[in-house]
Write a protein that binds this DNA or RNA. Structure first.
Length: 464
RNA sequence: GCCAGCGUAGCUCAAUGGCGGAGCAAGGAUUUCAUAAGUCCGAGGUUAGAGGUUCGAUCCCUCUCGCUGGCACCA
């Protein structure tokens, strides 16, 4: 039986459609998924949408449509965005999918059977101005930071709670004993220090929110969105008999839910824990947070129009926020597009194709290639930026080779040897690029298949 | 306020208790196979600031300044 590889991204909340801020994660996960698929592993790549909860309900009401209709539209939009980026998900799961709803309810009952769900009282301070709840620690002089003139209303509601506190020791020991559970290390330390500060039980149901999955044994309540959302991974993993997940890819805003709540929930319901949680940072645009209120939202599909799918993929994979927040801009994208893709990869391909065509060189059939060792090492550590850096090192070497040998001046056997060397190098580059720039890799492979190699249109026309 | 992280070349970042590195941008030289692309070579730094430990600190410690994130049921 083939080795399995199950990878997930976070599912995006359907309060609004996705934008470039959400793209890095999907592209990163896609590259890793493609890599494992290319290794011949039985790969399952899951992404999708998180569709329940108060905020969605509210947005739908504001728009005057039924919640389900509202999320149908957003989900379709999100999916189209990921398609534009060539994200090779195997399933686009929606938390409103019937199989997920059923599974989430079963999961809830399992946790309840373990004695980890109990009825309690949720008390919150509610600000009518913000229409949101606040924690004591968030208040300024006991008032809402945005509406200091209003009195906060103490609201209490009967909720079901999950006994997170029971798992404090387990989680601490587990994470201490499994350095690969949360990557990178700085995030793992953050999680550990959070756990050590003490974990409180959290509520997993709402009575005031109707847009959600009903609590199976008490349908006055709906399951709290986060509880519901996390379970999506298991819905699909169990369906494909591929649980536990090998990798959850997510942003730092989600790390606590994935590294603390989720493993505790799984343990309670009797499932294995995911192997690794890969946490990345955020993107800002022109030095600003990306947000609708700032009006600087760009959709992935708008970027791919200007830079091509692989142009966008390359930029994010090479300069994305893997361990640091990163600021992007159209100028930076353009500069990198020109220097690395047009002048680098694209030009090299055109050079060698031109040299081959002019000398009417006949090349041998391409061999079946495997990934370069160094590239494998980098991807296995999820350092995709490093992998690309290595590949670009190879491109540079090929350019130097052409210059130093003066390949265009060579004749006969010498020229053939030089071209053979270059062609094989390019074939290797294409092979290594497959997980990252699938479209480009395929074009290059086609062009360099032989026996005759011809010049083609530039892969990445220079942008001015 | 508390906790964590960051501050290194114009920009993006790397590095180590022992002479501060790379890529991009800018400058000079050079080649013509290629997308005015390629290659080569200078230059560019008081490693945010002050103090301390040390034979020696960019790295360890303290303080100051600046930035970012978290401080739990918004997702």
């Amino acid at each position: 039986m083939n080795k399995k590889f199950f990878i997930t991204t976070a599912i995006d909340y359907t309060n609004d459609a996705v934008h470039i801020g959400h793209s890095y994660q999907k592209i990163l996960a896609d590259a890793i998924a493609r890599y494992h698929r290319l290794l011949g592993e039985e790969t399952y790549f899951l992404t999708g949408t998180d569709e329940h909860g108060q905020k969605v309900e509210k947005s739908a009401i504001e728009k005057g449509v039924e919640p389900k209709k509202f999320v149908d539209e957003i989900a379709a939009e999100d999916k189209a965005e990921w398609d534009a980026l060539n994200i090779s998900y195997d399933r686009f799961i929606r938390t409103t999918d019937p199989d997920h709803i059923k599974f989430a309810q079963e999961f809830y009952l399992k946790a309840k059977t373990s004695g980890d769900i109990y009825l309690g009282k949720y008390e919150g301070l509610y600000c009518e101005g913000c229409e949101a709840y606040y924690e004591e620690s968030e208040l300024v002089d006991g008032k809402c930071p945005f509406h200091p003139n209003r009195e906060l209303i103490k609201i209490s509601e009967e909720n079901y709670f999950f006994r997170l506190s029971k798992y404090q020791n387990f989680l601490q020991k587990y994470i201490e004993g499994h350095p690969e559970f949360v990557i990178p290390e700085t995030k793992r330390r953050e999680i550990l220090s959070f756990i050590k500060n003490g974990l409180r039980d959290f509520s997993v149901s709402r009575q005031s929110v109707s847009w959600g999955i009903p609590v199976p044994d008490d349908p006055k309540h709906t399951i709290y969105v986060w509880f519901d959302a996390l379970i999506n991974y298991l819905t699909y993993g169990v369906e494909k008999k591929s649980w536990p997940a090998d990798l959850h890819v997510l942003g730092k805003d989600n790390q606590r839910f994935h590294a603390i709540y989720w493993p505790a929930m799984l343990k309670s319901a009797g499932y294995e824990l995911p192997k690794t949680i890969l946490v990345h940072d955020f993107i800002s645009l022109n030095g600003q947070k990306i947000s609708k209120s700032l009006g600087n939202v760009i959709k992935p599909s708008e970027l791919t129009k200007d830079f091509g799918v692989d142009g966008v993929r390359y930029y994010f994979l090479r300069f994305g926020p893997s361990t640091n927040d990163v600021d992007i801009s159209l100028e930076k994208l353009k500069t990198i597009f020109n220097s690395d893709l047009a002048n680098g990869l694209g030009n090299l391909v055109a050079r060698v194709a031109g040299l081959s065509e002019r000398s009417e060189f006949t090349t041998s059939k391409p061999k079946k290639l495997s990934f370069s060792k160094e590239v494998v090492k980098a991807i296995e550590k999820y350092e995709v930026d490093k992998a690309l850096e290595l590949i670009w090192g190879e491109i540079k070497k090929a350019d130097v080779f052409i210059n130093e040998r003066g390949v265009w001046n060579l004749k006969g056997k010498q020229k053939e040897a030089a071209l053979t060397y270059l062609i094989n190098r390019i074939r290797q580059v294409a092979s290594d690029l497959k997980p990252f720039l699938p479209e480009t890799a395929e074009k290059i492979e086609k062009q360099f298949k032989g026996p005759k190699i011809k010049s083609e249109k530039p892969l990445f026309p220079r942008l001015d």
